[in-house]
Design a binder for these strands. Sequence first.
RNA 1: GGGCGCGUAGCUCAGCGGGAGAGCGCUUGCUUCACACGCAAGAGGUCGUAGGUUCAAAUCCUGCCGCGCCCACCA
Length: 846
Amino acid sequence: MTVPEKPTIEGLEPIWGERWESAGTYRFDRSRSRREIYAVDTPPPTVSGYIHVGHVMSYTHTDVIARFQRMAGKMVFYPMGWDDNGLPTERRVQNHFGVRCDPSLPYDRDLDPDALERPNGEPVAVSRPNFVELCGLLTAEDERAFEELFRRLALSVDWSMTYATIDERSRRASQRAFLRLLTRDLTYQADAPTMWDVDFRTAVAQAEIEDREVSGTYHRVNFELEAGGSVEIETSRPELIPACVALVVNPEDERFRELVGKHALTPLFGARVPIVAHRLADPEKGTGIAMICTFGDMTDVIWWRDHSLPTRVVVQRDGTIAPRRWGQPGWESKDVVAAIAAQSELAGLSTTRARKRIAELLAQSGHLVGAPTPVRHAVKFYERGERPLEIISSRQWFVKTLEFREELVKRGRELHWHPEHMRARYESWVEGLNTDWCVSRQRFFGVPFPVWYALDDRGEPDHEHPLLAAEERLPVDPSSDVPEGFTAEQRGAPGGFVGDPDVMDTWATSSLTPQIAGRWCEDDDLWGRVFPMDLRPQGHDIIRTWLFYTVLKSHLEHDSLPWTNAAISGWVLDPERKKMSKSKGNVVTPMPLLERYGADAARYWAASARLGADTAFDESQIKVGRRLTIKVLNASRFALSIEAADGVVTETLDRSMLRQLAETIGEATRAFTAYDHARALEVTERFFWSFCDDYLELVKGRAYGGRGADAAASAVSALRAALSVLLRMFGPFLPYVTEEVWSWWREGSVHLAPWPTEAELAQAAAGADPAVLDVTAAVLGEVRKFKALNKQSLRARAERVVVRDKPDHLAILEAVAADLREAGNIERLETIEGDAFAVETTLASA
RNA sequence: GGGCGCGUAGCUCAGCGGGAGAGCGCUUGCUUCACACGCAAGAGGUCGUAGGUUCAAAUCCUGCCGCGCCCACCA
């Protein structure tokens, strides 16, 4: 045993970080059976995003659970992944290298990003595979920053199993999953109205949409009826009047009943539109009669579909108003000249500018009723977008989702949620789904669809019969690879082929993290041992995306849940309880905190937060963690530095302490088993402080030999038994300091030691009374209080202490009198029977 | 509009049917031989609010107020 003179927590982290790595402490041993394995579906962090304290919290939660399971006897499968897909990376690469992606270009094997010619500073067009390579260069740096943090935090992951969502295996898994869904008709292609971001110029899915409150303007507009007379509608989007294809009223609405089936004329454009009835029309809103445009919102799409209305699109993919097409088929007007004139006024304008312009035109023509009124209303945005979403018809890939809603709700009920109430979010999301999952994106950095389309004689693609890549060829990039039976020269030529230009939604890949990490279809042996996994840890903000899509994919592909437990961490809010965000400038970065207080201290703070609970960031809690860490070090030094032979635990006080400890083990184990790590920490910590403040003080003198060798041996044995247990109980929370202390006197890693059980203390603690320690500590406390109130040192000698208490308590004091007198420096200890507990202390005169 | 969660000491949070708690902060002491990155003591709360159930309610039920979030609507 080698116990340092002045133990310190400084410098422990690099030492143990390296030893764990070289010893393979957290290596996954795949020879273990499924029942012995605990598999974690680790969240791959978005590496191009910023690192904040929230990462420390949620990843610590996962690690604490993993470490408990490992000590409890499970072989933990705990890989790390990096999510490098997505728009943020794409944007950074464009700016950093001065390039733009052109999927029609062939791959350039010799592209040197540093030697690109950029005449006039224009971005250089590169092929998709080249663009993806450049993304890889940048994300590699980001990954290093995260890995540095996670290693410092002592996440007990097996770093040899790390994956990235853009790496070859992930692309292969994504494409394989897609092809398998396609052959089972669970994914399909459709030319349909979809939510569309006009800045990113891509379709987006329902899950990526958020509402934002913005300013708008209501315009009351007059529509002339074909049969004479007119009706008024109210709209916040008058620029869509040229896209109006019908008016709609509620079938129950008496006011408009006789209008149904008649026709109206759109103002300025003179298009003849029917008045239809639909239950979704709300008599309470606006004037009770609304215009149906192609397309203003998702309700328009429903009306349009249910009434088989024509399509008249005026908003283009870049968000501007389309040029005039009046007079052409589908664009009939009572007054084509006027319609063309009006359209010319709007063509090319953004929707916001077109809105202002058409309001002027409506006012001039007398169709605007009253003045436009400003309102605040919620509008749908792409979560990363800056302008409201439009609904645009385009060809997209969809995964069937709507028809599985009930089954997916059932899956959600099979899953063990921690905390339980997070299931409600999942259910309300699933029940509110209104479209299938749009998985195609008109972007570049991502996993391409492994399909091509044959071109007919006129060079038109045949979307009905895509040419699929064979699974053995995956991953493929259809912009560079050639479908079977064709040659590279036939790309784009009539009778030849084209590749699908789109990439998949990043969630299409992320939803396969169990399959990627478990090497689905690539390593059947591993897959059989880890799937379905045991744990999905994640934040509540991505229940509707990551969690939902993973459940969906697993349900469709494997007819099972992907995991049995979901542990949902809360958010770390700023001290004002606001969400941390880069734009608010209130983001707390974790590395400086780790450097100041140590990783164990930061982990202590993180683990103190319960699952699902949002926590306001409070640096003082990390300081508490640092105190605890140092305390563990010093208390351990004390327990181990006493030169006394081990012996048998015989003393009442020692046995009482061990009995309390045994109960603490039970509580902590139950808490951990119920995924309540915060409680496990709390009970362990509570015991530990009382162990230090009361028990250590009480046995100090005896341990030093004040009452002979046997009494000392009892104390020393009890101290060491308790220390062994406490180090293991703190192990999941404070991996560095516990490992350090463990190394002073034990072989191997504390993190591979068995989780303590009540049974291992059974012999020493059998029949012991847990109350002994409390009764004794209460008396000691009273004596200390008396000294403190008299401004004396706690070591000050007490001439006489009289305890009044119930007979059973006095019997306890009798048994521990020697320890108590030593700890309190008490000359004479006397007892009197009485109902009310009281202690009378007489100090020695100075 | 529907749903979920939360409102307990100045702060961060436990407790969830029978004593109102912890840590931080504050005040006052103590150089005690593991630790001054320490130890001890003290002050501090009508447990959001109004009812109800109960012998007993911070804890269960109902209404209301406030905060946060999720979903839906958004003419």
